[in-house]
Amino acid sequence: MIKLLGAVLLVGVTTWVGVNASFRLRQRERAARAFASALEQLAAELSFEMARIPDVLLKLSKTAPEITRPFFHMCVNATKQIGELPFSVIWRESLLKSHTGLGDEERLEVIQAGVILGRYGIEAQLGAVMNCIQRLRALADEASVMNRDKGKVYTALGICSGIMAVIVLL
C-alpha cells in the first residue's frame, strides 16, 4: 500500500513539474501579449491625450489587462519617489518586484522602454514604446510556437519520467 502511495506521489510530482513548465510557457506568452496591449494603451494616452505619466499609470493600474495591473499599481505608488530616484529606476524596480509572468527577454524589453519614458519628447517616447510593443509581440509569438512544440512534450516528459522512476525504484 505504501509502495503504491509512493508511486502515485512520485508520478504526481513529476507530472506537476512537466505541467508547470508547459504552464510557464503559456503564461509567458499571455504576459507578453498583455504588456504589449497595456503599452499600446499607454502610447494612445501619450499621443492623443498628452497625458502626464502619473495619470497614465493610474489609469492603467485600473484598466490595463489584469496580469499587468500589479506592475502599474506598484509604479503609481512609487511615483512619489520621483526626484529621489529617476523614473527609469522606479519603472525597473516595479517590474522586477511584481509577478508578471514575463520571461527574461520580455522583461528586458519593458525595462528598456522605461529608460526613455517620461524623460524625452513625445516622438522619442512613442518610438521606444512602439518598439517595445513590437518586440513583445515577436517574443510572444516565439513563446507561442515554443508552447505548441514543447508544451505537450514537457507534460508527457513529466509523466513518463515519473513512471520510469517508479519502475526503476520498484
Binding site: M50, A51, R52, P54, P86, G121, Q125
Partner: peptide, 18 residues
C-alpha cells in the same frame, strides 16, 4: 537638463515640451 525636466514634470517631459 533632462533630469531636471523629468523631476520637475514628474516624469512627463513630453507634456512640458508640448
Amino acid at each position: 537638463i533632462m533630469s531636471v525636466i523629468e523631476i520637475a514634470t514628474k516624469a512627463s517631459a513630453h507634456w512640458a515640451l508640448s
